[in-house]
C-alpha cells in the first residue's frame, strides 16, 4: 500500500483554482519529484498536506491517517516534515535553536517541567543539542550554529530549514525547491545529500524542484502538474518525453 495517498484534492482562492482534483500516491522509500511550471500548484499541495490551507475537496492519507482531519501541529508528529520555498525560519532564534525546534514534536518537556527545570528536562535539552549539532555538521552548517538566522545567505537558510525538517526524524520529507539559491556544485552536493539521507534514515521524499538535472538524476518517480492538475506521472525517462509535459513547459516559458 502506498505511504501517501493524495486523492482528488481541490483548492481554490476566490476565483483562482490552485488545485483541481489532484491525485497521486507515493510508496515508502521513494524519491518522488513533483514538477510543473510556475503557478502549477505544487506549493499549494504542500500547504494542504501541512494543514496550512484547507482543501475544498479530496483527501490526503498518510500511513492510514486522514491528514486533513488533523491539527497542523500533529502533522509532523505523524512523521511528515517539510521545508518552505520562501523560508519559514524563526529570526529570533539562533541557527542551532531553529534546528532544535524542528525536534519539538519528538521531544518532551511542557510548561511545568520546563519551569522547574527537572533533571530530565536538562538531559532532554542536551540530547536535542547533540541531535541538532549532528545534523548541522552533516549539512556543513556547524560553523554558523550560534549565529542568528538573520543575515545569512539564502542558500544557507534553505539548508537550515532542511536541517530543521530532519530534526523531526520524519518518515516523509517534503522539500520545496531546496536547490534555489545554491551554486552549481552545491546543487550536485544537495542531490547526493538527499539520496544519502533517504538511504540512511529510510525516508520517503517528495521533492518540488525546477532544477531538472537534479530531479531527473535522483528521483524514482516524477509527477508533473499544470494548472492544478496532474498531466503526467512515471519514471523520469518517460516523463521527459511526454508530449503533454513538453507542451506545458513550452507554453509556460514566455
Amino acid at each position: 500500500m502506498a505511504q501517501l495517498e493524495v486523492d482528488g484534492v481541490g483548492v481554490h482562492f476566490g476565483g483562482v483554482v490552485a488545485l483541481d482534483g489532484l491525485s497521486f500516491t507515493i510508496d515508502k522509500g521513494q524519491i518522488c519529484a513533483l514538477i510543473g511550471p510556475n503557478g502549477a500548484g505544487k506549493t499549494t499541495l504542500f500547504n494542504v498536506i501541512s494543514r496550512i490551507y484547507d482543501a475544498t475537496t479530496g483527501s490526503v492519507t498518510f500511513e492510514g491517517h486522514d491528514l486533513l482531519a488533523m491539527a497542523p501541529h500533529r502533522i509532523v508528529e505523524l512523521g511528515v516534515g517539510r521545508t518552505f520555498q520562501n523560508l519559514a525560519l524563526v529570526p529570533g532564534l539562533s541557527v542551532l535553536d531553529n534546528v532544535k525546534i524542528g525536534a519539538h514534536a519528538k521531544s518532551k518537556g511542557g510548561f511545568i517541567a520546563s519551569t522547574l527545570r527537572l533533571p530530565w528536562v536538562i538531559s532532554e535539552e542536551k540530547r536535542l543539542t547533540e541531535l541538532a549539532m549532528d545534523i548541522l555538521d552533516r549539512m556543513s552548517l556547524a560553523a554558523v550554529a550560534n549565529h542568528p538566522c538573520a543575515g545569512l545567505p539564502f542558500g544557507t537558510l534553505k539548508r537550515i530549514e532542511f536541517a530543521r525538517a530532519l530534526a523531526a526524524a520524519p518518515k516523509l520529507l517534503m522539500l520545496d525547491e531546496p536547490a534555489s539559491g545554491l551554486t552549481h556544485s552545491e546543487v550536485d552536493e544537495l542531490g547526493s545529500i538527499i539520496q544519502a539521507i533517504r538511504d540512511e534514515f529510510d525516508l520517503t521524499v517528495l521533492l518540488v524542484e525546477h532544477h531538472m538535472a537534479m530531479v531527473m538524476s535522483i528521483s524514482e518517480k516524477v509527477v508533473v502538474m499544470d494548472l492544478g492538475r496532474k498531466i503526467a506521472e512515471g519514471v523520469p525517462e518517460d516523463v521527459r518525453n511526454d508530449p503533454l509535459v513538453i507542451a506545458a513547459y513550452l507554453g509556460a516559458s514566455k
Partner: peptide, 30 residues
C-alpha cells in the same frame, strides 16, 4: 523560574510562535 522556562524547549516555542506561526506549527508547536 521564568528564566528556566525561557531557556527551555517551551521557551523556544514561545519565540517561534511570536516570530513565525507557520514555522512553529510545522515544527509541531500547538
Amino acid at each position: 523560574l521564568t528564566r528556566n522556562l525561557i531557556k527551555s524547549r517551551v521557551g523556544r516555542s514561545l519565540v517561534a510562535v511570536r516570530d513565525n506561526e507557520t514555522a512553529a506549527a510545522v515544527s509541531g508547536v500547538p
